[in-house]
């Protein structure tokens, strides 16, 4: 909590008084502030496991749906996944204190990471199919494989974000 200090003319501590800024200084001040808001922030530690677990649960639910031929559940599962993901993203935004602007286009390596997650899910599902041939196990294994790969990817991304955040703070 910041100390409640007295400031002359309502000015901020560390900032020059009103009228003392040259255009160049004002531009620099605004540029620094905008850059600080855009600075990448690390994700909370639970983000990766949370997303991974939700994917694993989705896979298990889809597997059970196919096993028991519950058509309604097959349609309901993606909706549940979207709602859980939205809640996780919302909680992450609240935890970080800054909601970033939506960027145009996909962040770098997104398609490659997506490919790795799909491959991990497919290989896990294939392994479960070869081992058991049970639809519920195939779904659960694919979900667990995909969720684990996604969790790992997010942990790596978070490490990169932490490094970036530390270097831009210096």
């Amino acid at each position: 909590m910041a100390e409640d200090k007295q400031f002359t003319n309502g000015e901020a501590e560390g900032l020059p008084p009103a009228g003392a800024l040259t255009p160049a200084e004002a531009l620099a001040l605004a540029g620094r502030a905008e850059a600080a808001a855009r600075r990448p922030l690390p994700l909370p530690w639970w983000y990766g496991p949370g997303v991974g677990l939700s994917i694993a649960a989705y896979g298990a639910a889809i597997g059970q749906s196919f096993e028991h031929q519950a058509q309604w559940l097959i349609l309901l599962c993606p909706l549940g996944l979207v709602l859980v993901q939205a809640a996780i993203v919302r909680a992450t935004t609240h935890a970080r204190g800054v909601a970033r602007l939506a960027e145009r286009g996909l962040p770098p390596y997104t398609m490659r990471a997506f490919g790795v997650v799909v491959l991990a899910a497919a290989l896990s599902g294939l392994a479960a199919w070869l081992a058991t041939g049970d639809q519920s196990w195939i779904g659960a294994a694919a979900g667990a494989g995909g969720g684990l790969a996604l969790c790992g990817g997010i942990v790596l991304l978070n490490r990169h974000l932490k490094e970036q955040s530390m270097s831009s703070a210096q």
């Binding site: 001040l29 502030a33 600080a36 808001a37 970033r100 602007l101 939506a102």
Partner: peptide
């Protein structure tokens, strides 16, 4: 300027 760099 800070707020213009983010959504909120």
């Amino acid at each position: 300027a800070f707020l213009s760099g983010c959504q909120e």
